[in-house]
Amino acid sequence: MKQARQPIDGVLLLNKPVGITSNAALQKAKWLLNARKAGHTGTLDPFADGLLPLCFGEATKFSAYLLDADKHYRAVLQLGTTTTTGDPEGEVLDTREAAVSRDDIAAVLPRFMGEIEQIPPMHSALKHQGRPLYEYARAGIEIERPPRKVTIRALELIECAPPRVVLDVQCSAGTYIRTLAQDIGAALGCGAHLTALTRTAAGGFSLNQAHTLAELETLDPARRAALLQPADCLVSHLPALHLDDASTTALCQGRSIAHPAPHAGLVRLYTAANRFFGLAQADAGQLAPHRLLATQQT
Rank of each mutant, 00 (worst) to 15 (best):
D183H: 08
L219H: 10
G189M: 12
A201Q: 06
I177D: 04
A181Y: 13
N208A: 05
E215P: 00
T200E: 15
D220C: 09
R178H: 02
R178M: 12
R178C: 06
L213S: 08
H193F: 04
T198K: 11
E215L: 06
Y176S: 00
A214D: 15
S206L: 01
L197F: 05
D183K: 11
Y176M: 07
L180I: 15
G191M: 13
L219D: 11
F205C: 07
T218A: 13
Q182D: 14
A192H: 10
S172L: 01
A202Y: 00
L194I: 08
A196D: 14
G203E: 07
Q182F: 02
N208E: 14
L197P: 04
A210G: 14
A181Q: 09
A181V: 09
S172R: 02
A187F: 00
G174R: 06
G185Y: 13
A192Q: 06
A196W: 00
A210C: 08
L216E: 03
A202I: 00
A181N: 07
E217S: 07
L207D: 05
L180N: 07
N208G: 05
T179V: 15
G189R: 15
L219E: 14
T179M: 07
A187P: 13
D183Y: 06
L188W: 15
G204I: 10
L194R: 09
D220A: 10
G191K: 15
E217P: 10
T198V: 12
T200R: 12
D220K: 09
A173R: 07
A214R: 13
L213D: 08
T200N: 08
A181L: 06
L194Q: 02
Q209I: 01
A173Q: 06
R199I: 01
T175N: 04
G204W: 00
I184R: 11
Q209C: 02
A186V: 11
A201R: 08
A196N: 12
T212E: 01
I177M: 14
T200V: 03
G174V: 09
L219Y: 12
T175R: 00
Q209K: 03
T200A: 00
S172D: 14
L207M: 04
A202V: 03
F205V: 09
T198S: 01
L219I: 08
A192E: 03
Q182G: 04
G174P: 05
T218G: 01
A173Y: 00
A192W: 10
A202L: 01
S172H: 02
L180G: 08
A201W: 01
F205G: 11
H193R: 05
G203V: 03
A192R: 12
D183A: 12
G185I: 07
G191C: 10
H211W: 04
I184H: 11
Y176T: 03
G204T: 12
T175A: 01
L216M: 11
E217A: 07
